[in-house]
């Protein structure tokens, strides 16, 4: 905990993230280029054919969508229990990224569904869960921007994030249950052949680095914005 706190005051964070940022940014770009190249150059899957490429864009996006929510929930816990100032900023900064990954997962899922299922949208368990997750992100962001007092908004959003963290596994379970009840579409998971490992993991790495980069940039922007506001307030007084 002590370790976390040392790097979590805004000043130290600016210094540290400033040093790390170029590496994650370049790393993300390289991994993305390599990952995309690998994704397009793998042999077609015997079942899915060429559409297997979408899979390399879709699955990491879905993974990141969940991962980002976990990050927000952890930040919220830090903020509520240890009153940690930077974790609110971090949680808020992560939300639009999570929503973006969720939307990307949904869109690529739909694009993948058209050739596979013959329609863009089927009420498949995974897609349905992610649609609900997208709304949870929207609600979280809406609450943040609705409450004007920033300190109050931060705590309210943190409470909501934790409530969501408890509820999301239940939602996931209930949607799976619902899916078996309605005997919906076939399962989307497929056994990944070893030949698909390199593009998949390269893309997962690229997404993670991209997330880290964008997250840090967003947190830095928020910190700078707050400093600028404080300066202007001081000038007015």
């Amino acid at each position: 905990m002590q370790f976390l706190f040392r790097y979590a005051n805004p000043h130290n964070f600016m210094r540290l993230s400033g040093a790390v940022l170029p590496f994650t940014a370049i790393g993300a770009a390289l991994a993305l280029i390599a990952g995309l190249y690998l994704s397009f150059s793998v042999p077609p899957d015997y079942q899915q054919g060429r559409t297997v490429t979408i899979f390399f864009i879709h699955v990491p996006a879905a993974t990141m969508a969940m991962g980002t929510y976990i990050a927000i929930a952890l930040c919220s816990l830090l903020s509520l229990v240890w009153r940690h100032p930077l974790s609110d900023t971090a949680a808020r900064a992560a939300a639009p990224l999570g929503a973006m990954f969720t939307a990307l997962g949904l869109i690529t899922g739909a694009l993948w569904g058209k050739p596979m299922w013959g329609t863009y949208w089927v009420w498949d368990a995974r897609l349905t869960s992610f649609l609900l997750l997208l709304f949870i992100y929207f609600g979280y962001m809406a609450l943040w921007s609705a409450i004007e007092d920033e300190a109050k908004a931060a705590r309210a959003a943190a409470i909501l994030a934790l409530v969501g963290a408890v509820n999301i596994p239940i939602i996931k379970y209930s949607v799976d249950w619902w899916n078996t009840l309605h005997q919906g579409s076939t399962v989307t998971a497929f056994k990944m052949a070893a030949v698909y490992y390199p593009p998949f993991f390269t893309m997962l790495l690229a997404y993670s680095l991209l997330f880290a980069t964008l997250w840090m940039i967003r947190i830095r922007t928020a910190i700078v914005e707050r400093r600028a506001r404080n300066l202007m307030q001081g000038a007015a007084a």
């Binding site: 609600g139 379970y173 209930s174 949607v175």
Partner: peptide
Amino acid sequence: LTLSLKRGGLILPLIILPLLAPAVIF
């Protein structure tokens, strides 16, 4: 969560409806 908001009634459904999905499903 929305009790201090003048127009909390608008944001409330957005917040809680996704969380109530399990109740509707079961």
